[in-house]
Amino acid sequence: MNGFVLTPVEYVGRWSINRVRSLGKAGYLTTGALRALRNVEIWGPRLLTQMVSVGVASVPIAVFIAVFTGIVLALQASYTLTGAVPMYLVGSMVGKSMITELGPVLTGLALAGRVGASTAAEVGTMRVTEQIDALETLAYDPLAYLVVPRVLAGVLMFPVVIVLASAVGVLTGWAASLTLLDMSSAEFVRGLRLFFVPFDVQFAVIKSLSFGLIVTSVGCFYGFHAKGGAGGVGVAATRAVVVSSVLILVLDAFWAVVLL
């Protein structure tokens, strides 16, 4: 290498090496975290706290988003349907899209911002202030202490938050149909039930589980490998949000292909 200028070939080479290296790190982290699952005595007590901060604390923002999504969906559906199609299909559209798609994905994205960033920032701060090293010297496996409870909380609580958000979205869609669209409750419910299959709920829960896994894992990954000081933490948080948002959309498409 002469000087600072990289030839394109070198650039590609370095890029590839870095990608493979991150994959390796991710794999290492994953296997480590799986191994750390044994240390229940370390992550067990932490799980509850994480369930609160990942799950319970996320309910308000998720519900907030769902309220408006539900209303917009109802109005949008009625706008689209105006004409030859019966209005009760507004119920179908609100229910179907809220339960299977918008509930999980919008909530997932919001939580990718909230949970992904805070996870990366927390873990990243602990990394750059040597708290992770301190954990190790105190005979704690940092993966068991930091990563496992967060990821588990994500996997457990994302479905919880998303189920609540979807329900709220459907309810506000219903309310909007009654108040803004002059539909009757019976009409809305008829449309709601028309195409509902229990699999919709399973589908949403499966998606939510994977979103929870992805958001918390990605947050932990970037936090764990944060470098430098506050700047490094910021970079980690930003990357965590971007990458987990992208992965949520990719996963969404993946599940649609695999399960539908």
Partner: peptide, 21 residues
């Protein structure tokens, strides 16, 4: 707190499914 939120979600999912069916 966690217990009530989780229970609420489970009830919503189960009863919601039944009701929608």
């Amino acid at each position: 707190l966690v217990g009530s939120v989780v229970l609420l979600a489970i009830l919503t999912a189960v009863f919601g499914t039944f009701w929608l069916q």
